[in-house]
Design a protein around this nucleic acid. Structure first.
Lengths: 236, 236
DNA sequence: CCGATGAGGGGACCCAGTACCGCGTGAGGG
DNA sequence: CCCTCACGCGGTACTGGGTCCCCTCATCGG
């Protein structure tokens, strides 16, 4: 195992840190204060957390690894967008499984700019993981990388929207159901997956926007969109 | 004016900072080194930039203010998504107007995690500005806030995708045109923005996605998209 | 009994960021 | 002409996050 039973010292540090952060504020608490309360050496703090901000998000590193594994374990024929949506539900669960802790942390990150920045970088790593997964599966599509990036960002934004309003409510309500609704909106927006490759019946998708143009211009635009040499044949 | 003529000292600091960053690396350069090269006091550095990272993104603060003003100046009847897309084009121009500087900075941010985090927080502020604008205009829609957040994230992601590939290419190619394509994809995904704008020059926009379908099916789809009774006439 | 290993502690150090003060300069008023 | 007040700038010292190096000590295998 890579994580052979949680060291109790780590938990003691998180415990002590949050006690002090909530009591006197994040910036008014030094690492020295934390390790003193926890009864350990200052050096040990940085053995377990990369920075003072890191102690506020103690579980994300592991969850990121789990998410990566979850995506890699997906079957080949599966809808990658659906897979990513399930993965983001895993992330949401990291919050909803510990409502009190998450709400406390939310109150901190809302106030302290440094913590917001740190959280952004954490979320960014999730998003890049999702985008990477989608990029691989959408590589053969036109603008596959663009689609992957946009869809990943939309999924994360939907997750964040649901999470934030759940946190603002103090951890009340069914965040999971709200996430399902939000993610359904996203998937619908992208044609239920500009990613949903071959399970769609239609093998043709056409979008036409016409604003009083003569029809021959419409035809010309379509032909140029189709590429050189393509012309409209007669119908059977 | 709120910015009464650029202080030359500020530019000298940026100049000196980038010279050293590119020469010996970001983390190997101290603020002391920068101010020594620029021939000013250490204290002055922090008068002009909030942090060492700040000197790498010297223009974003002003551009953010401009974007905020641009969005606020938008007419009421306008498509808010279109407005946001124009705003993000403003952000892109901040990069494309100075290709060499942007590419140099890109090489830095790519390597240094601290700079990536800082850039994330900068981008986040743009995104929240966009989302705030959309939230106001979509407030009456069901799930208005969700849509606003997701669309803002998608727009930013499209921008980032275009920007990154332009930066990776060393500043070659027409990033503006690529951005138009990418943003068109986003607007298409969201129903062309829940209300299209008519400020575009072209009176015809056609997007065709073909996946090995027979041409007559393409034609049929287009005709059905055009509405009942519409048929393709002969070209002149 | 001894050497190796690894977790933890201690102290020195670097540097970003801040607070405070002191200096020159330049404009305006007596 | 001088005084002074404001202001841009510099210098110094301090706090605190983060790193490095070395020490201790416990455990374990030989």
């Amino acid at each position: 195992m890579s994580s052979p039973s949680k060291p109790p010292m780590r938990d003691a540090l998180v415990e002590a840190a949050f006690r002090l952060f909530l009591e006197r504020g994040y910036e008014q608490t030094t690492v020295e204060d934390i390790v003193t309360l926890a009864g350990v050496g200052r050096r040990s703090f940085f053995r377990y957390f990369p920075s003072k901000e890191g102690v506020v998000f103690p579980d994300h590193e592991r969850r990121l690894a789990e998410v990566t594994g979850f995506l890699a374990a997906g079957g080949e024929g599966e809808d990658p967008v659906a897979r990513v949506c399930e993965a983001v539900r895993l992330v949401l669960r990291l919050y909803t499984d510990n409502p009190v802790f998450s709400v406390q942390r939310y109150r901190l990150t809302k106030e302290v700019p440094g913590l917001r920045a740190y959280e952004l970088s954490v979320v960014w790593r999730y998003e890049r993981t999702f985008a990477g997964h989608l990029r691989e599966r959408l590589a053969d599509r036109p603008d596959g990388a663009l689609r992957a990036d946009v869809i990943a960002a939309a999924v994360v934004a939907a997750h964040n929207n649901v999470l934030r309003s759940w946190l603002r409510s103090g951890g009340e309500g069914d965040a999971g159901a709200a996430a399902d609704r939000a993610l359904a909106y996203v998937r619908e927006a992208f044609g239920d997956g500009a990613g949903r490759g071959d399970e769609r019946d239609e093998d043709v998708v056409v979008v036409v926007s016409r604003r009083g143009a003569p029809m021959w211009r419409v035809v010309r635009e379509i032909e140029s969109a189709l590429g050189p040499g393509e012309r409209f044949p007669d119908r059977p």
